[in-house]
Design a binder for these strands. Sequence first.
DNA 1: ATAATTACCATACAAATGTATGGTACAATC
DNA 2: GATTGTACCATACATTTGTATGGTAATTAT
Lengths: 206, 206
Amino acid sequence: MVIMKSDITPRQREVLEKIIRHKSNFGMPPTLAELAESLNLSNRSTVQQHLNSLERKGYINRHPKSSRGISVNIEEKIFSPTPILGEVAAGNPLTIYPDSIDNVMLPSIAYMPKESFLLKVKGDSLKDAYIFSGDIVIVNPNLSPKNGKLVVAVLDDSAVVKKYYSNNDKIELHSENPEYEPIVISKTYFGFKIVGVVVGVYRRFN
Amino acid sequence: MVIMKSDITPRQREVLEKIIRHKSNFGMPPTLAELAESLNLSNRSTVQQHLNSLERKGYINRHPKSSRGISVNIEEKIFSPTPILGEVAAGNPLTIYPDSIDNVMLPSIAYMPKESFLLKVKGDSLKDAYIFSGDIVIVNPNLSPKNGKLVVAVLDDSAVVKKYYSNNDKIELHSENPEYEPIVISKTYFGFKIVGVVVGVYRRFN
DNA sequence: ATAATTACCATACAAATGTATGGTACAATC
DNA sequence: GATTGTACCATACATTTGTATGGTAATTAT
C-alpha cells in the first residue's frame, strides 16, 4: 500500500475540514472556542492539540497570539484525490467498473459526505439538466430519492443517471433529453436498484 | 451640492480602506488593535468610534464580542480596482466588483487556495460553454491564457468570464451565448487585466 | 510489557480583544 | 452662544482568546 507523505487521522481531518468550512462560511478562520463548539468539545485544549498535530504534519500554519491565527496550507492538499469508481451512462446504460478508473482532484468546496463517491458521465441525455459527457457527478448513496431528483441507478448490471419519478408500483427514470425514452420499472423488479442521489457535478477543463 | 444621505468623512474612508486592505492581505478582517496600529492611533477607543460611525452610516456591520467581527457592506462601490489587482498579482486574495458588463457577478469567496480560487457565476452568457448562473468556477491566476480558453478578466470596474482570443494588437472576449457581443480591447489598454484561467466548474444540487 | 500516540477532559493564567466612560480640541451648524 | 459632530486621547473592565500544565482512557507500536 502506498504510504502518504504525512498521514492524518480521521479526527484530524474533521478538524481540518471544519477550519476550511468556517473560512468558507464566515470569511475568516475560526477561534479555538468556535472550533471546540462545532466539534462538540467541552474546552479548547483538545482543539489546541489537534491544531498542534495538524501544524506538525504540515497541514496548517499558526500565527501565535493572533486571534483566528490559523492558515491552511493547501498547495494541493485542498484538492484531495478521490477515486472515480466508474462511468455512468446518461443515455444508454453502461457498465460500472469494479475498480476505480481515474482520480480526480476535487476542490474542497465540492464537499463530499463520507459515503459519497464519484462517477464519470458518458452520453448526452442529461444535457438539459446541464450535465454533459465527461462531467463527474458526486453521488450520495445514503439519501433517499425524491421525485424530480437526479439519481444514479443500476438496471441489470448497467448504471444510469436520470431523473427519478415514483408513482404507485412503478418507478420512472427520465432523461432530460427528449431523444431518450423514459425507463419504466416495476418496483418489485429485482434487477433494479437505486445507487444514490446526485448531490453535485464537477467538470475539469483540459 | 447634493448631500448624500449618509456621507463618509475622509478619515472614516481611510478606516474603511484599511479594513478592506487587511481583509485582502490577510484573509480576514482586522482587530481593533491592528486597525489602531495601521492608523497610527495610540489606542483602540478611537477606532471604536470610527467603527460606530461606519456602522451607523451603513458601511459595515459588526458582530458583537466576536474578534475581527467586522463585515464590509459596500466595498465595491467606493474603491477603484487597481490596487486590489496589484495584490492579485502578488498572489493574495482578491476582491472583484459585481458591477459587470454582462451580468456575470463575481463575489469573492472567502476561502481561496494559494493558487486557485473560486468565483460564483451569475448570468447566462456562458450557457453554451455549459456554465450556468450559480455555478462556481475554479480559477487559476498563474496560468497564461490561450486562445479559446475561458478566462476571468477585469475590464475597468467590471469582471467577466469569457472565452479568450488574442490576435495581433487586440484581445477579444467572446461569450458563447450569441446574444452577447464580443468585447474587443486593445492590448495596450490599461484598464484591462486577465485575472486567471478557468480550470474547473462545480455545481451543487440543492 | 513498555512506550508512544491519540483523543478527550479540567483548570489556570497572561495576553488580546471588545467595550464603556470620560475628557480635550476643533470645526461646522443652529 | 450653544449645540452637534469629528477626531483624538486616557483609563478601566469583562470577556474572549491563546496557551500551558496535568490528568484519564484507549489504542497502537516497539
